[in-house]
Design a protein around this nucleic acid. Structure first.
Lengths: 113, 113
DNA sequence: CTTATACTTCAATAATTGTGGAAATATGGA
DNA sequence: TCCATATTTCCACAATTATTGAAGTATAAG
């Protein structure tokens, strides 16, 4: 995952409604959710939600497929993993952290010794 | 880490110069870097950088301390860990992932076997 | 072929964010 | 005290982002 895409992904998640929508989609799993259900759940206008879903899709974080009249959105787990991977690598650059989950260490090298 | 703070943290990282600055600070480790060095490294005006560092500080991602005339910024690893933790929990909600590090698997299951 | 539903795109506007010069603040040294 | 350095705050302005109603597109059904 290159920096520009990382920026788009972070930007996509850095907004109340988009983060909420993405979380809904993650919970929804493989089946995903139709745009209308997300809009209703979040309480935003359909056109607003469409704008936000486009941002998530543009960042590669969600996929869409048409099912009859509805458009079903699903979370793109590999893309989210790639983002996590980038952050894990780049937020922990100089610090050894092999034995902790996630990689990011608890700040203090002496805790590792 | 609650949702509003997560949004601030994501928003803080979702900008070219701020992501770059944060990466520099992560690499710099405990010693951190003075604001001026970061500004020069990124090629932005001091006042612009100050604005960006304030955003990172506001999100709790960096700390600052004065050292003589300079103000030294350092990455706040625990805060970054907390962000990673939130994303890990909330980006993987419906998906079984117990056997992978971080929860989000490293894209490639064979690496784990 | 008309009508209804589910969404998206467009357009206008409001709100937020990013930018750098100039002025202000804090520290250190002559 | 006076001057230089390091950085922030203030200000005006540019650029981007968010919001919603209205119009457009695609699908389905009578």
């Amino acid at each position: 995952m290159d920096a520009p895409l990382v920026l788009r992904a972070l930007g996509a998640l850095a907004q109340e409604h988009r983060l909420a929508a993405f979380r809904l989609l993650v919970q929804a799993g493989e089946n995903g959710l139709p745009a209308g259900a997300i809009a209703e759940s979040l309480g935003v206008a359909a056109s607003s939600l469409s704008f936000h879903l486009a941002a998530l899709a543009n960042a590669g974080l969600v996929a869409q497929r048409r099912q009859s009249r509805q458009i079903i959105y699903t979370a793109n787990y590999p893309a989210m993993n790639a983002l996590m991977g980038y952050l894990t690598e780049n937020c922990c650059g100089g610090v050894p952290c092999t034995e902790f989950i996630a990689c990011c260490p608890p700040a203090n090298p002496k805790d590792v010794a």
